[in-house]
Amino acid sequence: MQNFTYSIPTTILFGRGQIQNLGAQMRALGSRVLLCYGGSIKKSGLYQQVLEQLQQAGIAVTELAGIEPNPRIESVKRGVELCRAGDIQAVLAVGGGSVIDCAKVVAAGVSYPGDTWDIVLDATKIVHVLPVASVLTLAATGSEMDCGAVITNLQTHEKLGTHHPDMRPKFSVLDPTYTYTVSKWQTACGTADIMSHILESYFTGVQGAFVQARFCEGLLRSCIHYGPIALAQPDDYEARANLMWTSSLAINNLLSYGAEVAWSVHAMEHELSAFYDITHGAGLAILTPTWMEHVLRSGRADALAVYGTEVWGIDRDLPQADIARMAIDNTRRFFKEDLGLPGTLGEVGIDGSRLEEMAHKAAPLLATGTFVPLRYEDILAIYRASL
């Protein structure tokens, strides 16, 4: 196991009715707040609850509305301008990961004098970050408890992540009932996203990280168990609560501290989203089993076999190669049949015309530190096999 410093300082307010604590928590961060959201919170009534909490706490509110899925740099820049004009002291995101990611980069961009896209390209240029908080409405990205954000620039066909310790939310309200109205599609995509986060950490070459591996396996089993229940019964509190907490634990560094590895599938999927603006979780569901095929061809049946026995309950007395193959098949079948997600790139409107370009863009991000080698040729082969 590697050395690490454990610090996950986000305060989590979990459960029904925790919105009642929003005003006091937010007031401690500032009296002039930028409220960031997409659009669905007005339909659900959450928007009014948030405004009432902030107004009762004497907080002046400026709004950044209409934040997109796969948040655009243009929305970030609008938020930066609003913060500067209103002398904003803190940023509150109400929504899913896209809204929270946008809010984080807004908070980091206010004090940066140049083009805000610069701090996405190079996080070392971040000099100061306004306090960020969130009210979560979708279990998926885990942005409510991590220090990263992913922003899309459609003009340059780039979808890139940026990170800074101060972008981690100071607090997050996690009320599972806010996810009751999430569509089946977004619930399924969110579950796939959570599982991908866990798998990226699970398949590490670091030896001796036994505890992290067992955490990963338990969280994966939670997704496999509760994902279909949430699809069938959207208002099942137990299912929604377990998915929501798994979302946070999947990417708040609990699984990766001491077992760091460069993520593989996410970098490849970001190219799909940057070029075609598809739903992130759907792209991950398509690419993950195909990446596992590459892992198997690379001689790591041993790791896939452990995954198969500990997560899918496959008979450990079977030949290792058979277990590995069954584990991949189970993963693909779960995404396709149990969650109802697409299994090929063609199903989401992606043909083979830009695969080489996407592979070239992804290759530098995957040059070192991945679980198995991923050269340009490997990435292109994975894309093609996913068609």
Results as ranks from 00 to 15, higher is better:
Y376T: 01
A267I: 01
M167Y: 03
E63C: 07
G205F: 03
S273M: 04
F275R: 09
N330I: 01
R332N: 11
V295I: 15
D329N: 13
R27V: 06
S222N: 12
V150D: 07
D146W: 01
V129C: 15
L366W: 11
A65Q: 11
D351I: 01
C223P: 06
A24I: 08
C83I: 04
S273P: 05
E356H: 12
E337W: 00
I67W: 04
A327N: 08
T10Y: 10
S264V: 07
T62S: 14
Q320E: 15
K104W: 09
M145Q: 08
I382H: 03
Q186A: 00
K125E: 05
V76C: 11
Q186D: 11
L136S: 08
K104T: 11
S143I: 01
T10S: 15
I67M: 03
A285F: 00
G95T: 04
A213F: 04
S247P: 06
L296H: 06
G30I: 12
A107G: 14
T309E: 13
V80I: 12
Y226C: 07
V99C: 06
P342R: 04
L296W: 03
L220V: 03
P69I: 06
V132H: 05
Y307C: 03
C102G: 12
F203K: 06
Y257R: 10
L249M: 14
V50A: 05
S143T: 13
Q18P: 04
V261H: 02
V261W: 02
H225C: 09
E377R: 13
S353K: 09
A367Q: 13
A267G: 09
G208K: 10
G349H: 05
T162P: 02
L220R: 04
V127F: 00
I350R: 05
Q53I: 05
E356G: 02
I194D: 08
A108V: 10
K43F: 01
A267V: 02
H197N: 12
E200N: 07
R214N: 12
L231K: 08
L318Y: 02
C189R: 00
S183H: 09
T246V: 15
L365S: 10
P228C: 07
L174R: 00
L231H: 11
R78Y: 01
T177P: 03
I314Q: 02
L35Q: 05
E81T: 14
Q320V: 08
